[in-house]
């Protein structure tokens, strides 16, 4: 039996003494492509922080595989544009933990950074200042930084937040390719249900301190979504893509 990369066993999450998430239990097996979806402030980031080990659970057990290595892609606007760093400088940070204290990145690190930039499709931007990049390019640079450390679990926090339709499609396509082609296990957090529903294999709906997790057909259906969101929800399919449509209680007032 394959050991999961991460396992949550009756984990209660919160800050101080305040509980944010009820008892949460799930596994992340190798090769999974899991999306956590929910409204802003629902607790998605809290789950991710505990998964990454930056938030200690209030109770329960989180088990991580011994060979687990995260590649973390933070929200793009968390990256400070005041620092005069090139794309190359930022990507190499993903290997800093392998470089002893007192040593600088060497040719092997620079080569690895170049390979990572090629994987995300921006090898020619290596010497450009990070601050000068567009939102989509910056996101690719951050994904390259996560990849350069050769992770077996890629975690992305709101990777398409604030992006236009083209950039959103390109970034989600890139993440799907990394999963399909490299067999990389991927966890993605987003508030955009329609975006996530068409890319991931499993979805964790986070709402009101609860988590409901299952395969895409298990979760993205009218019965579940209507129950969770408390609104009549329609799930349609166009050209193989799921489109979730929430109807407000006023007739004719639709939201995608």
């Amino acid at each position: 039996m394959t050991i999961p990369l991460v396992e949550f066993d009756r984990v209660v999450l919160g800050y101080g003494t305040r509980s944010v998430m009820d008892e949460v239990s799930f596994q992340v097996p190798k090769g999974d492509f899991l999306g956590f979806v929910g409204p802003n402030g629902s607790g998605k980031t809290t789950i991710i922080r505990s998964l990454l080990g930056t938030l200690v659970p209030l109770s329960g057990v989180i088990t991580r595989a011994p060979d687990l290595r995260f590649g973390y892609v933070p929200q793009r606007d968390h990256v400070d544009s005041l620092y005069p760093l090139t794309v190359d400088d930022v990507v190499i940070m993903g290997r800093y933990d392998r470089i002893p204290i007192g040593r600088r990145p060497g040719p092997a690190d620079r080569k690895a950074a170049q390979v990572a930039l090629e994987q995300v499709g921006i090898p020619d931007l290596a010497r450009r200042p990070l601050a000068s990049l567009s939102g989509g390019q910056k996101q690719r640079a951050l994904i390259a930084r996560a990849l350069v450390g050769d992770p077996n679990l890629l975690v992305l926090d709101e990777p398409t937040n604030g992006m236009d339709l083209v950039s959103t499609t390109q970034i989600l396509g890139l993440v799907r390719d990394l999963h399909d082609d490299r067999g990389l296990t991927v966890i993605m957090v987003s508030h955009a249900l329609n975006e996530v529903a068409n890319y991931v294999r499993r979805i964790g709906l986070v709402f009101g301190g609860h988590l409901r997790l299952g395969t895409v057909p298990d979760i993205i259906n009218e019965a579940v979504l209507t129950e969770v969101y408390g609104l009549p929800v329609e799930v349609n399919s166009f050209d193989g893509h799921r489109v979730v449509l929430a109807r407000s209680r006023h007739l004719g007032d639709d939201h995608v």
């Binding site: 080990g53 930056t54 973390y72 933070p74 968390h78 990256v79 400070d80 620092y83 940070m93 930084r145």
Partner: peptide
């Protein structure tokens, strides 16, 4: 190390 924890403490912590 000072650069990494100053620039992106969240990612540094995950490593």
């Amino acid at each position: 190390e000072f650069l990494f924890v100053s620039f992106d403490p969240e990612t540094a912590q995950t490593l």
